[in-house]
């Protein structure tokens, strides 16, 4: 192990994981390049687009701005932990049903921001949704179908409980 490399243990999508990497590795690089989870996207690398959003200890964060070393001991969720094409998470179901996905590059980040919101606030107002996803830029949809999906998912959740 080289002097400048770091070793961490953390929980990733419900599974305990450990990883070793150079100290200056960002959380995004760890996820994409070391752990090979390609669902999390890089759109700018400087915290401006939200494509790299993951959930750390329940909070949506831009993984491009975080050092991988900061994930030590924490719980991380990425898009791969949400659902699979055969068994979609209700939120993913809503995005598909409401046609919120065009090119899809913003989608994983948006889903993670939304999941973090709905986990703490299952029935958000439009203003609360807007605040939660204002950092997730989408160049394709104009956000209408995205709001509809989130409202739909929140509504569905309400009905389920």
């Amino acid at each position: 192990m080289d002097a400048s490399s770091v070793r961490i243990r953390f929980t990733l999508n419900g599974q305990p994981r450990s990883a070793e990497f150079p100290a200056d590795t960002t959380a995004l690089k760890l996820i994409r390049d070391v752990l090979k989870l390609k669902g999390t996207k890089e759109g700018c690398g400087i915290g401006e687009c939200g494509a790299c959003t993951v959930i750390v200890d329940g909070k949506a964060v831009n993984s491009c701005l975080m050092l991988a070393a900061q994930l030590d001991g924490r719980t991380v969720q990425t898009i791969e932990g949400l659902g699979s094409p055969e068994a979609l998470h209700p939120l993913q179901e809503a995005f598909v049903k409401e046609h919120a996905v065009q090119c899809g590059f913003c989608t994983p980040g948006l889903l993670m921001s939304t999941k973090a919101l709905l986990d703490i606030n299952p029935a958000p107002t439009r203003a609360e949704i807007s605040k939660a996803i204002a950092g997730n830029l989408c160049r394709c949809t104009g956000y209408r179908h995205i709001f509809a999906s989130i409202e739909d998912a929140a509504h569905t959740r309400k009905e389920q409980t």
Binding site: K36, L37, K38, G39, T40, K41, E42, T78, I79, E80, L82, G83, S84, P85, L88, Q92, F95, V96, K97, H99, V101, G104, F105, T107, P108, L111
Partner: peptide, 23 residues
């Protein structure tokens, strides 16, 4: 008819492979 869009499932699950993702 507004049917389910082709590729939407792969995109919401992070499985769609963009150029930066191809192994």
């Amino acid at each position: 008819k507004s049917i389910e869009r082709v590729g939407a499932r792969e995109k919401v699950t992070g499985r769609a492979r963009y150029s930066a993702d191809i192994e």
